[in-house]
Simulated scan of single mutants.
Amino acid sequence: MTDPTTVDDFYRSPALDFTPYPGEILRRRAVATPGLHGANRAWQLVYASRTGLRAPIPASGIVITPDIAELAGPSPILLYCPVFHGLGGRCAPSQLLAGEGTEPETGFIATALERGWTVAVPDGLGLGMTGLGPHHFLAGGAAAHAVLDLARAARALPELGAAQAPCVAWGYADGGRAAIWAAEQHPVYAPELDLRGVAAGAVVADPSALIGEIDGGPWAGLAVAGLIGLSRAYPHLPMRHLLTDEGHATIERAQELDAAELLLAYRNTALGPWCERQDPWNDPMWRYALANETSGRVAPQVPVHLYHGIEDVLVPVAMGRHLFAEYRTHGVDLSWREYASSHIGAATDGAAEAVARLANYLLRRPAAAGPTPPAPQTT
């Protein structure tokens, strides 16, 4: 592994002096994943993706094969969408998974490998790649593109022989948001992918409600991250126009921090004192952006399993129930499960059923292509 204080040349942003097609592999290398049970071969990838505004951008991720001697045909691909890791620094999942077991979600990934699935883990736009940050945290369109384009890249790896392999997606919290947005965007952005279904827990379906609730509290670092990530995803809008000089300096420091550092540095910190107004989320620009980031406006064309902890104080269960109700009005093939758990507890409690649901979805034949739904306005 590269020393954490140095820049890994593999993750340097390549000069895009051409327009690569989404999912095109720009760089790849084989890596070991010593801390991941059930893993066989793995590759870190730099691949072409698109921002929410459809501008070309390199992205990074990792593809891991299962350590199973014989598989009948190509392995299904699980698109595993990780929880928020941070805005910058060496915290990208593709880097941690190739380290010495410092990735916190190895247990969930190992469960999928034990099923015989290949697992593809996107870092997310702006994370991992040098010079492209900060991470586009909470930007649904950007997250969906990173997920779907990694699926394209994984199916193009010659070692996998998986050009026609079916895919499923799974994530929790912001990872659940990425999985849901991938399902919503799939028919218009990547209709050639054989996506069979999605499992998503504690989905951050309404960032406006979440950010307003956590600002100034123990999770306030995530509100800071939301301001930074969404302003990065909407470069055509003056999203930081409300910041004072002190606010700009604070944001410059914060956009290089990982999740743990953000939560520690900004615990119980409100954004108001760094802004020209005390309620920055009610500024017209921010109201526009946050309304544009609401999930449930478009119906996924694949089955969806949602789950949530009743005692979740970070992402309230009411948010998950509302998303379930929205999808039900759209006629989505749905299932729902509540657990008497906290935010962290429900991630563990819901994992077994999530994987079982995904396994069932993989047994279904792909749905016949129907009319393409309208694309939502995305970042």
Rank of each mutant, 00 (worst) to 15 (best):
L263N: 10
G171C: 03
F18H: 13
G176S: 08
Q255H: 12
G296A: 07
Q185H: 12
L358V: 13
V188F: 11
Y80C: 02
D17E: 08
G226T: 03
D194N: 12
F84I: 05
H37I: 15
T269Y: 02
S208T: 01
N282A: 14
I211E: 11
N268Q: 13
R267T: 14
G140A: 15
E338N: 00
E261T: 11
W117L: 10
E159F: 05
P134S: 02
A270T: 14
E246P: 01
L36A: 08
V355I: 15
L222H: 03
H136F: 06
A173I: 00
Q278W: 04
D279R: 15
C91M: 08
A346M: 12
V315P: 12
P74R: 11
L79Q: 03
A139I: 01
P374Q: 06
D174H: 04
N40S: 15
A183I: 10
G38V: 10
L222F: 13
G133V: 02
E184G: 07
S231V: 10
A163W: 04
A182V: 03
A270L: 04
R29G: 03
L363R: 15
A120I: 09
L358N: 13
D3T: 03
G141C: 10
A289L: 07
T250K: 14
A291Y: 09
T19C: 04
R115P: 00
P376E: 02
A156N: 13
L150T: 14
A69E: 07
Y339V: 00
A162Q: 10
T2F: 03
E353M: 07
A356K: 09
L314V: 12
G88R: 07
L334F: 06
L96V: 09
T2V: 10
G86F: 08
A254W: 04
V198K: 01
A98L: 08
Y189T: 09
I251R: 02
V168D: 00
G320H: 05
G216R: 00
A55P: 00
L78E: 11
N282Q: 15
D312C: 06
A42V: 12
T379G: 15
S13L: 05
A55L: 14
D9N: 04
T372S: 11
I180P: 02
W43E: 09
P218C: 00
E159A: 14
T378E: 11
R357D: 07
A347D: 05
V224S: 01
V317E: 08
L263E: 08
P82W: 03
A202T: 00
E246W: 04
G35M: 08
A225L: 04
Y11V: 01
H330F: 09
R90E: 11
N292P: 07
R177L: 02
E184H: 06
A347Y: 11
A139G: 11
R177P: 01
H305Y: 14
R115E: 14
V147E: 04
G201F: 05
A144S: 06
